[in-house]
Design a protein around this nucleic acid. Structure first.
Lengths: 148, 148
DNA sequence: ACTAAACCTATTGACATAGTAGGTAAATAG
DNA sequence: CTATTTACCTACTATGTCAATAGGTTTAGT
């Protein structure tokens, strides 16, 4: 399954922010770009998507940066993905003859509709905090310094 | 979730072939294009993908067309999707620093790897026959004429 | 021989992606 | 007050994929 770098980097940056922002502090795009080896300029286009969705907040100026706008158990993976790509979780738009009750509608709802439902159920039921825990469990040792 | 028309039409055409090819007969691209309201020329590019994957066979010349190369319970939805789009079921390719054990690898495997695994499990465990049955169950009445 | 079918290749317009680049606004340190 | 550092905004570009359209070739049946 192909995922755009915009979504990949956005998710990665959010995890980075969660890990490296102590209480009260923030994380700059330069920090993230350096740690995760991403173009800083590109990140500067991606992070506003998460801010506009209300998931992170920004602090301008010296010592500024980004931090989570609320605790990680207060939003879901679905929230994040929707912020980064408004089509990734959307139901397939029906091309051509819409809802004529023909084969096309049947196939689309039975296959793509079903897959889409399962995917949505999965990401809606997983909070960002759940995800961070799972990451931590899968790579023990790496996360020991951080409280998440 | 966005799905290309190539995959959508290919799947639809295969269902059409399964429904409308009686034993021994075949279904032409003109038939499918007319019934499903798809460009015939475009279909002519898509169906060879299914043929090359061994799912259908083609008969050239007058009264020619396509038919299933084996019964619908002998191949899976995964086979079909792979034939139509070799990246749709593939694991995300890691961009940039590969497998460095950093955050990127962890996030990718915990989220995209997981989603990809679930998707693959779903389509590998569903035979084409299973899918046809499900379509039939979801739209009773429409399929009564056909033996599938 | 004629016709109808699959098959093959090239071309095109539209769109999204993955950045790069340059400048603006705001906040802080000195 | 000024300089610096940060987020923010907009424009541009190169690349690739999609979704066809088009035209010609091969094969097989009548």
């Amino acid at each position: 399954m192909r995922v755009s770098t915009r979504v990949e980097y956005g998710m990665l940056a959010l995890v980075d922010i969660a890990m490296y922002s102590e209480s009260g502090s923030s994380v700059s795009t330069a920090d993230i770009a350096g740690r995760e080896n991403i173009s800083q300029k590109y990140l500067e286009q991606i992070l506003p998507l998460l801010r506009q969705a209300g998931l992170i907040k920004a602090q301008k100026g010296l010592k500024g940066g980004y931090y989570l706008s609320r605790s990680a158990d207060k939003f879901t993976m679905s929230d994040i993905l929707n912020a980064l790509d408004n089509s990734i979780l959307e139901e397939m738009e029906v091309t051509g003859s819409v809802n004529d009750g023909g084969l096309r509608d049947t196939v689309n709802s039975c296959l793509w509709g079903r897959i889409n439902s399962e995917l949505n159920r999965y990401v809606e039921n997983m909070s960002f905090a759940d995800f961070l825990s799972e990451c931590r469990n899968n790579t023990p040792g790496q996360w020991d310094l951080y409280s998440i």
